[in-house]
Design a protein around this nucleic acid. Structure first.
Lengths: 231, 231
DNA sequence: TATCAATTTTGATATTTATCATATGGTATA
DNA sequence: TATACCATATGATAAATATCAAAATTGATA
């Protein structure tokens, strides 16, 4: 983790518009003063399950995973989060402690804003609060939808789904480097590591994808879509 | 569905305190004037997937199910909702249309408050908005936690989990009438109807529970808990 | 009451998925 | 350099779960 100062002023931040656009100038300026900018490397924890929630977080750049460690020691990945996903909204306003860990899976830059300041602004500024409510709704709808989709698919369908997810939602290209291990894919779509590997190999043999370590090249997107939909 | 007027004034509503307690008197009075009270019988739809969201809803009494119909026609039950679960919060503030259906599974009473009025009050009253944010966080944390729990269990564990859920969270007694069919249990914990029935029969044979149609009597709660935890 | 449809039930069987074993290559570490 | 530890990979097998079929029961309805 590295403290940085990439953005000089919230006023010029490209992501401002999605959340802070309607904030009163004086409030935005207070946010700007209080905020801390941090850069994380892949694998670095941003928060750990059980940590006290003290900041409102804001992913500016990069990719994160949210995961929960279960009583039996097994891990489940709740979601992959991009900028604008506002994953920090998940439980900031209700819980004192995080019920999940957040880990960078790519070089990631986050802004940390003191939580009590945020709450103060919310209390004062209902329009901003409504914006937060909308964003929180969206985050939840997104996570739930993907869970429901994954649940109804068999293993081949899940692998196809997640390959297309990285393709369409994250990298917007047919060739990309997986930001997660096979084991993490397994934790994300509820299957065993061996089966993740096995089915990826199947897809390779069927010439639907090419694999070089973490590098994935989607050759037959339509076929992958079919497998995701009906497989 | 029946229009009723069980409560004369929001001021005297027992559930007011959980959400509307800090509302300004004049706002509470506007809510009181605008609100519509409705009673639903088991099986009646309150909203349907695809309906336009026009109201903020508030479960006063009863039990609901949230479910989503998937593209392939299969149903998944997202959650069971009690009073105070504020299930209406799930996507009211972001989406124009419901992404799920809500159905009564017991006699249920709901208050409907015009959504534009609610938004107006939120914009004006940040403290109320913060309360909503907290509640929304709680709803989501609850739903996610139960999903994660269910996901890591085998079928016997899931059945034990759901029996204990009704026992501990809903009815607070060891003897209760299931508010859902075997098929709906299957849709809720991601398994097949036949296996729900089969495992319930197993538990009956092992004298862990007694079954008379919808009536469940939990005989060995500890054993059920063990199966839920480790089975 | 008679009839139809849906739900519950059980058994047999097929399919899917997990588990176990083993091997290989890479990477960090002493 | 040697060692240990992961991640990836593949095969064989076991276990879990779904599917198919058929019957009994219940509930709704004409």
């Amino acid at each position: 983790m590295k403290l940085i100062r990439d953005i000089n002023d919230c006023k010029t931040c490209a992501y401002k518009s999605y959340l802070f656009s309607n904030l009163q100038p004086e409030d935005l300026s207070r946010v700007n003063i209080s905020r801390i900018e941090k850069e994380f490397l892949p694998g670095e924890h941003i928060v750990r399950q059980g940590d006290k929630i003290a900041s409102f977080m804001y992913l500016r750049k990069g990719l994160l995973k949210l995961s929960r460690e279960m009583e039996d020691g097994k891990n489940q990945i709740i979601s992959i989060a991009r900028p604008l996903d506002f994953i920090g909204l998940l439980s900031v306003f209700s819980e004192s402690y995080y019920h999940f860990s957040i880990t960078a899976i790519e070089n990631s830059t986050l802004c940390f804003i003191d939580l009590s300041l945020m709450k103060e602004i919310i209390r004062k500024d209902g329009i901003f609060a409504l914006k937060l409510l909308e964003n929180m709704s969206n985050v939840n709808e997104m996570i739930m939808s993907s869970w429901l989709s994954i649940n109804e698919k068999n293993l081949r369908g899940r692998i196809a789904y997640i390959l297309l997810f990285f393709c369409n939602e994250i990298y917007h290209t047919e060739e990309y480097s997986l930001p997660v291990s096979r084991k993490e894919i397994a934790e994300l779509i509820h299957m065993r590591t061996e089966n993740v590997i096995r089915i990826l190999s199947e897809f390779r043999k069927d010439k639907i994808i090419e694999i070089e370590g973490k590098l994935i090249r989607v050759l037959e997107k339509d076929k992958l879509q079919q497998i995701a939909d009906f497989g």
